Simulated scan of single mutants.
Amino acid sequence: MKGYIIYNTEDLAKNQRFIKFITETLNEYNIDVELVITERMKLAETENPDFVINRSRNADVSRYFEGKNIRVFNSGKITEIANDKRKSYEYLEGIVPFMPLMSEEEAESSGKPYIIKSCNGHGGTQVFMVENFQQKNEAINEMKGNDFIFQKCCSDLGRDVRVYVIGNEIVQAMERTSAESFKSNYSLGGKAEPYTLKDYEISMVKKILNVLPMDYAGIDFIFHKGKAVFNEIEDAVGARMIYENTDIHIVKLFAEYIAREVRK
């Protein structure tokens, strides 16, 4: 049995440990893994693997293989919605609370700081808190033509919680904080520690997973007036925060889940 793990070139260097862990674990189950780079891949000429681990954030890649009845981790649906914040909010409207989206006019007339963020950004990139016209223009220029949204700013800045999910089940929640920025991303220097989810937070996660089943992902929550509200889904979620702050071998757990799934 053989599977592909698919990456973009720009994400390859920082994911070497992830690739190593998942390959070594699947090899223990006599499953081979081949690394495939999207920029070098011609789908029409690609052989059919037994499964695909799509870490490219490209839903078209997932759907190509799904069209051949090949199991893909995560599904094309998850990859599409998770990597488009506008679609995420539209899909989860009425299911879980999140900070309201605004029109440009509503944002400018609110008289309060607001958020501009790209729809397809990840890792805290292309997220800006805006307080005046100049900052708005600078933020929009940073979008570099990508679709973006205006959003009401939460009250509790520099704090969020990421919930790691494997096989549609909660594995571990991590709280991230920053005293330097309104963004608390670990990759941007935020601090992290294990977090115990409250009952209402677990309920929100389960509501999301009920409509968007996930193989391996992170669900992020920010805080407004002390209460968690949904922020985004990380499809190709990283693992460094887990390894540096817990004893959980999360990539091994994911690989073991894959081994079970592909042998059903």
Rank of each mutant, 00 (worst) to 15 (best):
G3F: 13
G3A: 08
I5V: 07
N8G: 07
L12T: 13
K14V: 15
N15H: 12
I19G: 13
I19H: 15
I19E: 06
K20D: 14
F21M: 12
V33W: 06
V33E: 03
V33K: 00
E34D: 12
E34S: 07
L35S: 04
L35W: 03
L35V: 10
I37W: 02
E39P: 11
R40Q: 12
A44D: 15
A44G: 02
A44Y: 14
E45Y: 15
E45G: 05
N48Y: 08
F51C: 08
N54W: 12
N54G: 04
N58T: 09
D60Y: 13
F65R: 10
F65N: 15
G67A: 04
N69M: 06
I70P: 00
R71V: 15
V72R: 03
V72H: 12
N74F: 08
S75Y: 11
K77A: 11
I78E: 12
E80F: 04
R86C: 13
R86H: 14
S88N: 11
Y89L: 11
L92Y: 09
E93M: 14
E93H: 02
E93C: 12
I95S: 05
I95C: 02
V96F: 05
P97I: 00
F98T: 02
M99K: 10
P100M: 01
S103M: 05
E105L: 09
E108Q: 06
I115C: 06
C119Q: 01
N120S: 15
G121E: 13
G123Y: 03
G124Q: 11
V127I: 15
F133I: 06
F133T: 13
Q135R: 03
K136E: 15
I140D: 01
M143H: 09
K144C: 08
G145L: 11
I149P: 10
F150A: 01
Q151I: 02
L157R: 08
G158H: 12
G158F: 15
G158I: 14
V161K: 07
R162N: 02
V163G: 09
V163F: 08
Y164V: 09
Y164C: 05
I166C: 03
G167F: 01
N168F: 12
N168Y: 06
I170P: 00
Q172L: 12
A173W: 04
T177D: 05
S178R: 13
Y186V: 11
Y186G: 04
S187C: 12
S187L: 09
L188H: 00
L188D: 03
G190M: 04
K191E: 14
K191I: 10
A192F: 08
T196K: 05
I202M: 13
S203W: 09
V205W: 03
I208W: 06
I208Y: 05
N210M: 09
V211S: 10
M214H: 00
I219T: 07
I219Q: 04
F221L: 07
F223P: 02
K225F: 01
K227Q: 13
A228I: 03
A228H: 03
F230Q: 08
N231Y: 03
D235F: 04
A239H: 13
R240S: 10
R240G: 02
M241I: 13
N245K: 05
H249T: 09
K252Q: 10
A255C: 11
E256A: 03
E256T: 07
Y257L: 08
R263T: 15
K264F: 14
